[in-house]
């Protein structure tokens, strides 16, 4: 459904662009003809599909890493201790700092390979995840936890499981949302300095002033993002259904 929605919006935008081109008599140099876009999308799709899949793969790894990091940090920061408050303050302050501005430093130190792309993708989707997990893990579910507390059965794992279950919808939403951010982060990293992925394709197209290639890249990015989000949401709904019986 999400993919069809995206395709509908994409082609409406393309037709609007064509309307603008032919309405205002703009040159092929500024806005390429529809046939050129058509050829790139359907005949030379491999120029965009494989880099998009490569980007999706890095975004997926970065997303997983960010979830793992956010859950781990939030787990240790959920208590009201000085250490926990320090982590919370650091997280709130650091997330206001644009990761894109830090990205060149990452490339300078780590080069333009996979690791840099992965790190930037992770950093971009990590903070929203961390803030959400911090909120969820720190908020007691009194009506469920009370019994375990009274009977001295409330260990850390039980506490976190209860809080996760009670906030399952919120967790699924934030994980889906941060999936988009992971994709964005990877593309930004590729656009800045990498030599792989769809961001790199867009950068090359920008230097060649090739709008048809940029539009084709956008289509494949959208398809990959929609596919990824659909899978995450499907898995989330499945997990929720299974857990709630």
């Amino acid at each position: 459904m999400r993919i069809f929605q995206f395709l509908a919006i994409f082609f409406i935008a393309i037709f609007a662009l064509m309307g603008l081109k032919y309405g205002l008599g703009l040159s092929n140099y500024l806005i390429p003809p529809f046939s050129e876009i058509w050829v790139l999308i359907f005949k030379k799709y491999y120029l965009f599909l494989y880099p998009s899949l490569n980007t999706l793969y890095v975004a997926f790894l970065g997303h997983l890493l960010a979830i793992f990091l956010a859950v781990t940090v939030a787990f240790f920061a959920r208590t009201g201790s000085i250490f926990a408050n320090l982590i919370k303050t650091a997280a709130y302050n650091l997330q206001s700092y644009p990761v894109v501005a830090v990205a060149p430093i990452v490339f300078i130190f780590l080069g333009d390979g996979l690791f840099s792309r992965l790190l930037i993708a992770t950093l971009i989707c990590y903070f929203p995840l961390l803030l959400s997990f911090l909120g969820i893990f720190s908020e007691p579910v009194k009506d469920v936890e009370h019994f375990f507390k009274q009977t001295n059965r409330l260990d850390s794992l039980t506490q976190v499981l209860i809080r996760c279950y009670e906030n399952l919808d919120k967790i699924i939403t934030v994980i889906s949302g941060s999936g988009t951010l992971a994709m964005v982060g990877t593309i930004v990293a590729e656009f800045l300095a990498a030599t792989n992925g769809i961001g790199y394709v867009i950068r090359k197209a920008l230097y060649q002033n090739n709008l048809a290639a940029i539009l084709s890249s956008l289509l494949f990015i959208g398809l990959c993002s929609s596919l990824y989000l659909s899978v995450v949401e499907f898995l989330g709904a499945g997990i929720k259904k299974r857990l709630s019986g």
């Binding site: 009506d143 469920v144 009370h146 019994f147 009274q150 499981l161 209860i162 279950y165 009670e166 709630s244």
Partner: peptide, 14 residues
């Protein structure tokens, strides 16, 4: 022990 009426059991358990 103190028990009150709005207490719940974890939702993933029967």
């Amino acid at each position: 022990l103190l028990s009150y009426n709005t207490e719940r059991i974890p939702g993933w358990y029967s």
